[in-house]
C-alpha cells in the first residue's frame, strides 16, 4: 500500500477529530465517561496535526501528493 501524502494525512486527521467526538458519545452510552479536558485536548492536537499536514500540501498537484 502506498504511503499517504499530506492531503491523505489531513483527511485522515479530519476524520479522526470526528471519530474522537463520536467515540466519547458511544462510551458515554455504555456508562464510561472520559473527562472533558483530555478529550478536547486530544481533538485539538489532531486538528493542529491536520492543519500542519495541509501546510505540506504542494500547490501544484503531483500523483504523489494525492
Amino acid at each position: 500500500m502506498n504511503r499517504p501524502g499530506p492531503v491523505g494525512i489531513a483527511l485522515v486527521l479530519a476524520f479522526a477529530v470526528v471519530a474522537v467526538i463520536e467515540f466519547r458519545t458511544v462510551l458515554g452510552m455504555v456508562g464510561i465517561d472520559i473527562a472533558i479536558g483530555p478529550y478536547f485536548a486530544g481533538a485539538a492536537i489532531l486538528l493542529v496535526g491536520g492543519a500542519a499536514a495541509l501546510f505540506a500540501v504542494p500547490e501544484e498537484l503531483t500523483p504523489e501528493s494525492v
Binding site: 479530519a14 470526528v18 467526538i21
Partner: peptide, 26 residues
C-alpha cells in the same frame, strides 16, 4: 488562488459542522 487554502476551508467546515450538528442532534 490556492488549492491548499481551499482544502483547509472545506475540511474546517466538515469538522465544524460535525461538532455542531452532532451536538444539536444529541
Amino acid at each position: 488562488f490556492s488549492r491548499r487554502l481551499g482544502l483547509a476551508q472545506v475540511l474546517l467546515w466538515f469538522i465544524g459542522m460535525v461538532l455542531m450538528g452532532n451536538a444539536m442532534h444529541r
